[in-house]
Design a protein around this nucleic acid. Structure first.
Length: 362
DNA sequence: AACTGAGCCAACCGCCGAGAC
DNA sequence: AGTCTCGGCGGTTGGCTCAGT
């Protein structure tokens, strides 16, 4: 019946590791490589749980780890990624070579969260506290208007949580490349706000929902449209823990296939602030972005900026180091899944400056 | 010098999906 | 088919350090 237990939990050492124990793990890994952690304590002569050994290795002993302070660039990337994908520390850490999810998580909890709070920005929603209060005021208003909130919820559900075939968010053929994303905000305007002037006051609250739904949509669509969507990463992204607005949706299939997880672990310049800022400036100078069409590109694993197509991806890390073997030789100008999210976020802001909450320089 | 509280971070906890048995 | 472990994940905690009193 099942496997035998990996270790006697009550009889193993716990707590801080000694230099001698570290040396044993290092010696074992150098001789036998990584794998089968349950056997490591026995083979290495350690009175530790295998899981504990694995954690010690991955969080501290790995030779590729950086133990110095986080750079401002890393800091900014963490903030932006947290804003885009929330507390997916392992995903964020993959964009920061030499950093572990534990490092990033600790740095966030001890430094960045406080830093944002001091700047008047809510570290959870990345919105200014002033707007949080404003939203709170609107929510109070909503709670006092039972009929209108019922109507609002009904419209919201029918507009945003319907099946993709009838979804107002995604219009057109869901099985072709002609899928067109309509900004949800626009849909709601058409379907419910247009005939109800009072409903505009619901916008701030809707924007919060909208932001979450857009993230959820992105992950659902990208993961479901990729040929290899069975990875743990995808599962984690769609896990019910992650979002409060979970709705089961049949996957939308597109004609393109991709390994979307490649975007997460690859990035020629994940920071890419020079390029990123340059692109942003170009976007600004070109006026409104083609948000509607490019949203679809995200779903297909393609990111465009103006006429520039980031359809293929380099695989180097933050320092230009090769971080994995997923190399696309056709790569000319690189981007990543995470960068794509950030791009789209900024595009949305530039297209709907008066509707979406403002962006902040951290 | 002794105490206290904050900051920090390594390690643990508990959950989950995948897969072994 | 059911039970269990493994590996991975995010959340939490224990204990160390250090500045302030």
């Amino acid at each position: 019946m099942g496997r035998p237990p990996c270790c006697d939990k009550s009889n193993v050492k716990r707590g801080l590791w000694t230099a001698e124990e570290d040396a044993k793990i290092l010696a074992h890994v150098s001789n036998h490589g990584i794998g089968n952690w349950t056997m490591v304590p026995k083979k290495a002569g350690l009175n530790r749980c295998g899981k504990s050994c694995r954690l010690r290795w991955t969080n501290y002993l790995r030779p590729d780890l950086k133990h110095d302070n986080f750079t401002p660039q890393e800091e900014e990337l963490i903030i932006n990624l947290h804003k885009a994908i929330g507390s997916r520390w392992s995903l964020i850490a993959r964009e920061l070579p030499g950093r572990t999810d534990n490092d990033v998580k600790n740095y966030w909890n001890t430094k960045l969260r406080k830093k944002l709070s001091k700047m008047g920005i809510d570290p959870v929603t990345h919105k200014p506290f002033s707007q949080m209060l404003s939203d709170y005021g609107n929510i109070n208003w909503i709670s006092n208007t039972g009929n209108q909130i019922a109507s609002f919820n009904k419209n919201l559900n029918s507009n945003l949580f319907s099946k993709p075939e009838s979804s107002p968010v995604l219009t057109g053929s869901s099985s072709s490349n002609n899928v067109t994303l309509k900004p949800p905000i626009e849909q709601v305007q058409e379907n419910s706000f247009a005939s109800n002037s009072c409903s505009w006051e619901l916008l701030p609250q809707f924007q919060v929902t909208n932001h979450e739904i857009m993230q959820q949509h992105l992950f659902n669509e990208v993961s479901s449209s990729c040929s290899s969507s069975s990875s743990t990463t995808v599962t984690q992204l769609n896990s019910p823990r992650s979002y409060t607005c979970q709705q089961s949706q049949p996957p939308i299939t597109t004609s393109s296939s991709c390994l979307w997880s490649e975007f997460l672990i690859s990035d020629s310049d994940p920071l890419g602030y020079s390029d990123f800022q340059q692109q942003q400036q170009e976007q600004d100078s070109h006026g409104v972005m083609s948000s509607i069409s490019t949203q679809n590109d995200i779903f297909q694993g393609k990111f465009t900026s103006g006429n520039e197509d980031f359809g293929s991806y380099d695989q180097r890390g933050i320092n230009g180091n090769q971080t994995n073997n997923y190399t696309d030789a056709s790569s000319s100008s690189a981007s990543s899944f995470v960068d794509g999210i950030l791009d789209k976020d900024r595009e949305m802001r530039s297209q709907f400056p008066e509707l979406l909450y403002p962006s902040f320089d951290y």
